[in-house]
Design a protein around this nucleic acid. Sequence first.
DNA 1: GATACGGGTGTTATGTTGTATCCAACGCTG
DNA 2: CAGCGTTGGATACAACATAACACCCGTATC
Lengths: 159, 159
Amino acid sequence: MNTIGFDAHDHTHCIADTMQSAEALCAEKGLRFTPVRRRVLELLLAEHRAMGAYDILEVLSAEGLGSQPPVAYRALEFLVKNGLAHRVEGLNAYAACAHLGTSHAPAFLICRSCQLVAEVNGDELSAALETEAAKSGFRIERVAVELVGQCPSCVGKAA
Amino acid sequence: MNTIGFDAHDHTHCIADTMQSAEALCAEKGLRFTPVRRRVLELLLAEHRAMGAYDILEVLSAEGLGSQPPVAYRALEFLVKNGLAHRVEGLNAYAACAHLGTSHAPAFLICRSCQLVAEVNGDELSAALETEAAKSGFRIERVAVELVGQCPSCVGKAA
DNA sequence: GATACGGGTGTTATGTTGTATCCAACGCTG
DNA sequence: CAGCGTTGGATACAACATAACACCCGTATC
């Protein structure tokens, strides 16, 4: 497991780079990276945390990009389906993908204090699970690993 | 990982035994195993699948045990808090615990065809995650591992 | 250029899941 | 039996999600 996400980093680049990758990825797959979809991904990238559909909708609405729930949900569905974002089950919320393009089984470290969400590589983990599950005849299609706790910075601050 | 839950078994005993263990466990801890709580656990045990709070409420209501959401949620909260049941995040639903009494980090195999939920032991897995997370300074408090796919029986039936 | 098709979006309405709050009933303990 | 803590009942509401249908716009086709 390869933990990134809790370190300081150049966030402006982080957003710009990912947006560019997303752009390329959509072009390559013939997907339509429309304004709403683009904006939603930007929003998710801007925070390194999970946002609820209605948080996103609020921003979209303020920017005149749509005011009803389906607008947000459709954009999120598109992003998730195409690997640009993930749904965090435990929060009923969504986070931008941190490993664009690479096929991956993400695992999430979720800070309950600051809501920061770090995506770590869960490939090995998933492979192990896959092997085990296969023994019982279960066919895995989707893996969700979500760890709730406190991030390094919040461990320091609070008791 | 120790996979149980997809095998045929004597379901009547399975329910009775677990109820008895639950009874003992509550007595030991000085918890009040009230009619509503008892009935909800029975319901969860009767199915080896996850039930939504409102599914449960429907039954409770029909049986005169309460008709409003808080009734179901309070009982579920009690069961979850005391390790008698688990919440399945990916389904917004609840399942009876299959390893009563043992401290454990459960992992769930969820069949998307028949909604069967098998609880497997995820202790090793969680220990590994714990170790890894500790390296990055993240302090894990709760682990959710949920695998969606098809159970052996449904793999056979459907394409 | 007219026409049909398909994906994306706007909008209304509704469904599902989960909480806050306040008060009544119960059971224990002093 | 008075006081207190836990449980349960009821109302109201908040948060999350989808169904269904109309419309627009670009592309393909004739």
